[in-house]
């Protein structure tokens, strides 16, 4: 679509949307947010870009193809599922690691890896659909 307003707005909005998607993603688990909704926002940002500049340009910009993204999402899901089995707990049981940095506590966990997988799958799936519809 050739529109000066859309082009300019997209450049500004895309960065904002991507940051917001990351914010939503990390906010997850204890508060509303998480991989799915974060992924929707991330996909929304790229879709906006694809609308403004065309699917081909969008594909070049994100470099990685949507299906590869889904595949890496699967990898993350499998890792988060297998991790607990090493310590003899059922598939997908949450494993937590609490790290103390001065006065902030950083929580690392296998649900986080799972959420990364969900994020990648959601973005990949939506982009795959959008790109395949945009092609013609």
């Amino acid at each position: 679509m050739k529109s000066l307003i859309l082009h300019t707005a997209t450049r500004l909005l895309m960065a904002l949307l991507l940051i917001f998607s990351l914010f939503l993603f990390f906010r997850g688990h204890d508060e509303p947010g998480g991989g799915f909704i974060g992924g929707l926002f991330g996909a929304g940002a790229i879709t906006l870009y694809a609308l403004a500049f065309g699917a081909e340009k969008a594909q070049q910009t994100i470099r990685i193809s949507p299906l590869t993204m889904i595949a890496w999402g699967f990898v993350a899901l499998i890792i988060s599922g297998i991790l607990p089995m090493i310590v003899n707990e059922p598939f997908l049981t949450g494993q937590w690691l609490f790290l103390d940095f001065a006065d902030t506590e950083v929580k690392l966990s296998s649900p986080l890896i799972f959420d990364i997988g969900v994020y990648l799958c959601v973005v990949g799936f939506i982009l795959a659909v959008i790109f395949s519809l945009e092609e013609e």
Partner: peptide, 12 residues
């Protein structure tokens, strides 16, 4: 979510 995925496919 599932409905959304299936719908996207149905549209394609």
């Amino acid at each position: 979510v599932i409905g959304f995925g299936l719908l996207a496919f149905a549209l394609v």
